[in-house]
Amino acid sequence: MQASEAEWTDIEKKIARTAFDKAYEREIEALLKQVQKQASTLVDLGELWQLHDFLSAKRHEIEGKYDYQYSVLLFVFAGLVKEGWLHLNELQGLDKDKLSKVAVLSRM
Rank of each mutant, 00 (worst) to 15 (best):
I15P: 02
R26H: 14
L55K: 12
L31Y: 09
K96S: 10
Y68R: 13
L31H: 06
G79I: 01
V104F: 14
S106V: 00
L80Q: 11
A39I: 10
F75V: 04
E5I: 00
E61L: 07
G64S: 12
G79M: 06
D21Y: 09
F77C: 05
W49L: 14
K96P: 11
V102H: 02
L105Y: 09
A6Q: 05
R17I: 07
L105W: 11
L51T: 05
R17P: 09
K98N: 04
V35M: 08
T18Q: 14
L45T: 07
K96E: 14
E83H: 10
I28W: 12
E27D: 11
I15D: 01
A16T: 01
G79W: 06
I15R: 00
L80F: 09
A39H: 09
L74R: 03
R107W: 00
T41S: 14
A19T: 03
G64K: 13
S100I: 05
A19N: 05
L31I: 06
V72A: 07
G64C: 05
L51V: 03
A78I: 01
L73Q: 08
A3M: 06
S56E: 13
D97K: 15
A6H: 03
E83A: 13
V35P: 01
S4W: 10
A57R: 15
Y68W: 12
L31N: 05
H60Q: 15
M1A: 06
T18A: 08
K65P: 09
A23Y: 09
D53A: 13
M108R: 13
Y68F: 15
L51S: 03
I11E: 14
L32M: 14
K22T: 15
E47A: 10
D10I: 01
Q92F: 10
V102N: 02
W8T: 00
G84Y: 00
A23E: 03
A30M: 12
D67I: 11
G93V: 03
Q34V: 01
I11R: 12
V35L: 11
I62D: 04
E90N: 05
S100M: 12
T18E: 14
S40I: 02
H52R: 15
L31F: 11
A30D: 13
H52Y: 15
Q50C: 06
H87E: 14
A103D: 10
L105V: 00
A30K: 15
L88M: 10
A57G: 09
I28H: 11
L32K: 15
Y66S: 07
V35W: 10
L86Q: 07
E90Y: 08
I11L: 09
L42P: 03
S4H: 09
L32Q: 14
E47Q: 15
A78M: 05
V104W: 15
Q34I: 00
K98M: 06
